[in-house]
């Protein structure tokens, strides 16, 4: 069995700062990490490999320094890593990203061994769209299983897989045919810590680095900024509200009532609304 896991190197958004004047992102000193959601996908892939044999290939599209993330994913015990990097990919939106990744996955299937399952994270913390997974599935014609919380059964001989999928009001138990694409829900497993031999192997591993041409991408015009139908026109900081908050001065025992009065003054209908709510409660 051969599983491909797509991971993305992202800036640790908890540490991103915005320039107060120019509103540009101050990237200085912001560390990059593996998109945290993708770790659940990596772990699930490794588990399936441990149970059923085969190999796990990690794939990322990004700048050369994304190699760090791949190497880290290898320390968890993945078998191979592919870095898709080319200036043609710069500025990709989800459509262009899924095009490049789908092409690379097809090439991975040809070069190494046929791919049975593609995993992605639920979404990224920088793009935050949850669209790249479905995009890859569509382009490769794979069954699409999003928000999966559990792989319940895998029958390699029969070519089927069963999963639990998070729906809005419940959980769907689904069965589909391989090959398929799974986007893994967060909190579904704990990423393992690789052994020292795994870590040594990862440190020594040759990362496969592919340009657009190496990945057999037929049409670079469909990549990067050129291949992206969406255009970011404006980036701006949320504005402060025009009127300032009405501040209530703490005043000993009277404070709570003063605060409630301030609420009712601001929204005259609120008292009646609360009364209705309390009655109906």
């Amino acid at each position: 069995m051969h599983i491909v896991v797509c991971i993305k190197q992202v800036p640790d958004s908890a540490q991103i700062r915005v320039h107060p004047v120019t509103n540009t992102i101050m990237r200085q000193g912001v560390p990059t990490i593996i998109n945290p959601y993708d770790l659940f996908a990596v772990e699930e892939a490794l588990r399936l490999r441990d149970q059923h044999g085969g190999a796990v290939t990690i794939l990322t599209m990004g700048p050369p320094m994304a190699e760090e993330s791949l190497r880290k994913a290898m320390t968890f015990g993945a078998d191979r890593a592919v870095l898709l990097t080319d200036r043609f990919f710069a500025g990709s939106d989800t459509l262009a990203t899924s095009y490049a990744l789908a092409s690379a996955i097809a090439k991975i299937g040809e070069t190494f061994e046929p791919v049975d399952i593609v995993f992605t994270g639920k979404q990224t913390i920088d793009g935050d769209t949850a669209q790249v997974g479905p995009g890859i599935a569509k382009r490769l014609g794979l069954a699409q299983l999003t928000y999966v919380s559990r792989v319940a059964a895998l029958d390699l001989a029969g070519g089927t897989i069963e999963v639990d999928r998070r729906a809005e009001g419940g959980v769907q138990a689904l069965r589909t045919k391989l090959p398929c694409l799974i986007t893994m829900l967060e909190g579904t497993n704990d990423i393992r810590r690789g052994s020292l031999p795994d870590a040594l192997r990862a440190a020594r591993a040759e990362i496969v680095v592919w340009s657009a041409e190496d990945a057999g991408i037929p049409d670079v015009a469909k990549c990067g900024l050129r291949g992206s139908p969406t255009v970011v026109k404006r980036v701006f900081a949320p504005s402060a509200r025009a009127e300032k908050a009405a501040m209530v001065e703490p005043d000993g025992a009277a404070t709570a009532d003063a605060l409630i009065d301030a609420m009712f003054t601001q929204r005259p209908r609120l008292e009646a609304d609360l009364a209705t709510l309390v009655r109906g409660f």
């Binding site: 800036p11 958004s13 908890a14 991103i16 700062r17 915005v18 509103n23 992102i25 913390i125 920088d126 970011v232 026109k233 404006r234 980036v235 701006f236 900081a237 949320p238």
Partner: peptide, 8 residues
């Protein structure tokens, strides 16, 4: 960018 900014 993690919600620090909005974009159109």
């Amino acid at each position: 960018f993690g919600g620090s900014l909005l974009c159109t």
